[in-house]
C-alpha cells in the first residue's frame, strides 16, 4: 500500500519531535508544561500534548536530558529538564542528517513543481 502524505508527515513528526525538544533545551532548562505548551503553539508540531510526557521520560532514561526539581513562585515545585552532553551530541548528529535529507528532498520536489 502506498502511504498518504499525512501518514508520511506524521511519521516524520514523530521521529523529529524528540530532537525538537532537545533543541528547545539548548538555550535554557525548562519545565515540562512549558515545553509542551511551546511545542503545541507551533502549527502542526504536536497533535496530542499528552504524548510528550512519555517522550520526556524516554529522553531522561536515555541520558539525553537531566532533571532537577526547583521551587516555583506559585504552585508546587517543578521538574526542570536540561540537555546533557549526550543530548547535545545526538542533536548535532540529527541536525546534520536532517539538513542533508531536507536539501535532497527540497531539490527533488523543486524539480517536480517547475
Amino acid at each position: 500500500m502506498v502511504a498518504t502524505s499525512s501518514d508520511v508527515v506524521s511519521q516524520l513528526r514523530r521521529g523529529a519531535l524528540e530532537f525538537c525538544v532537545l533543541a528547545m533545551l539548548v538555550e535554557e532548562e525548562r519545565y515540562a508544561f512549558d515545553i509542551v505548551r511551546s511545542l503545541s503553539e507551533l502549527d502542526g508540531m504536536v497533535t496530542a500534548e499528552g504524548t510528550l510526557y512519555p517522550l520526556l521520560s524516554r529522553l531522561h532514561k536515555d541520558g539525553r536530558v537531566s532533571t532537577t526539581w526547583k521551587d516555583s513562585d506559585a504552585g508546587p515545585p517543578r521538574k526542570y529538564y536540561a540537555i546533557t552532553a549526550a543530548g547535545r551530541q545526538a542533536l548535532a548528529e540529527f541536525t546534520n542528517e536532517w539538513r542533508r535529507f531536507r536539501d535532497a528532498v527540497e531539490s527533488l520536489l523543486a524539480k517536480g513543481t517547475t
Binding site: F33, A48, G50, Y53, P54
Partner: peptide, 28 residues
C-alpha cells in the same frame, strides 16, 4: 492548563489537547 474556575468547555479543550489516554499510553 485550567483556569481557577473552569467551565465544561475549558475542561474539554484541555483534555482534547492532551489526546486520548490510549494515545498517551501508546507513546509510552
Amino acid at each position: 492548563a485550567l483556569p481557577p474556575q473552569p467551565t465544561g468547555a475549558d475542561v474539554r479543550n484541555v483534555l482534547d489537547g492532551l489526546g486520548s489516554p490510549a494515545d498517551i499510553a501508546a507513546a509510552a
